[in-house]
Design a protein around this nucleic acid. Structure first.
Lengths: 230, 230
DNA sequence: AAAAGTCAAGAGCAGTGCTCTCTAAAAATG
DNA sequence: CATTTTTAGAGAGCACTGCTCTTGACTTTT
């Protein structure tokens, strides 16, 4: 039993080492990292990797899950450090955390929010980690609504055909939040990742140099759309 | 002379055929399409491709330029069909055209707005085509401001450090537009491509089914941020 | 101590981007 | 018209890729 768990522990450590090496290679080769190169770096032969991951795709999936969890955790940590009553502060803290994580781990960010890897279908285990940031945002909205600080309706009316879908989402994510508020929350969500992606993927090149200030402005604008004032 | 231009014309046709085949392969293999497979499809040998493109990157660059031009042209065409005084209509037409082009050509969209291809640096010739949609949006803003329909200031104040950069952008893109208006235009620009990318890259999966309506709502919300009312 | 389970290595297959050399045809030049 | 020059493509080859299968060594369990 102890022996078995030793083996299991060694196996877990090896798995982590492979992922760490793969993450390093992600930086130079992107999603088409080379299994053989990873193996070489670890001083083993390529076929040995297959004892730990059934395929390259499975390795990628592990990296994707880790990445989603890492952004999610970073955003949650930052948001948790802000006074609960300061809704704008909580939103901005989460946004900044996402951006900073993305800047520090650009290739992992690209892996999860960039173009889908061709021929790769995300398995179901990636879904829960993928929704952590979205959940965090909606939690802020829920708090704001509960405290009477966020209006249910504001701005563009939500088209009728969207309401049942939004209602279902509210039901499974944040019970009690009005659909129009969630709809605006999704606007902010798109704005957040749109801004980070544009910066990271080079769309701001030759246009904006002071990316930090630009991002701050964008996220404050998004906050206004949702109804979060200072 | 005529003979020379015959040769040149054949060469141009062959170049187009290679690009067309490469575009087809983009669908299955994404950015790491195989030169050999492209050559095979054209009934030639891989080394022959190198008579037309010095490297795989050069082929990719050609595809990227074509893609930027295609979205740009689609957006311009759609926007041109709307009454000049109908600013909201022009904005929405451009947005819908971008989305529809992206849905029809998802892999080309991913090539230009997705994660950067690892080890690939976009050469300067991609810059002008890349800015066509942005130019179109700012042209709408300029018209609206000239007609007195768009307020210079609105919503979130533009941070001081951003103003000189925005001023420079205004100068080289759309003289006469106030910086805060351009800043809001960029918000809408991010919202547009953020929404399309989220839909295309699968971030809306298991959340929103009626993507068309959702997109419409998002773009109308973005229009409000800029100050474009019905 | 024997049986079962696990790990890693090595060879091999079909594929890749790219370079180099060679041939055949076409165009430009005398 | 004949000859030189330019060009397109073919083919072989290099170092690489993901992945499979077989073989040998080691560890855990019975």
């Amino acid at each position: 039993m102890t022996a078995a768990s030793i083996r299991a522990r060694v196996r877990a450590e090896m798995t982590e080492e492979i992922k760490a090496a793969a993450r390093r290679h992600l930086a130079t080769d992107g999603a088409n990292l080379s299994l053989r190169a990873v193996a070489r770096e670890l001083g083993m032969v390529s076929s040995a990797i297959y004892r730990y991951f059934a395929s390259r795709d499975e390795l990628l999936t592990a990296l994707i899950v880790d990445a989603y969890d890492a952004v999610g955790a970073a955003a949650e940590r930052a948001e948790a450090g802000v006074d609960r009553a300061d809704l704008l502060g909580r939103w901005l803290a989460a946004c900044r955390a996402v951006r900073e994580w993305a800047l520090a781990n650009p290739h992992e960010y690209a892996l999860i929010y960039g173009s889908p890897v061709p021929g790769y279908a995300a398995p179901p285990d990636t879904v829960p980690p993928a929704s952590r940031v979205g959940l965090l945002i909606t939690a802020i909205l829920a708090d704001g609504f509960a405290a009477g600080k966020l209006a249910a309706e504001q701005g563009q009316p939500v088209p009728q055909p969207l309401r049942p879908e939004l209602a279902a989402l509210v039901g499974q994510l944040v019970p009690g939040v009005p659909e129009p508020l969630l709809a605006r929350g999704m606007t902010a969500w798109i704005q957040l990742f749109g801004a980070v992606s544009f910066e990271l993927f080079g769309q701001l090149n030759n246009m904006i140099e002071d990316r930090g200030t630009f991002f701050e402005y964008q996220m404050r604008t998004a906050a206004r759309v949702v109804g979060l004032e200072g």
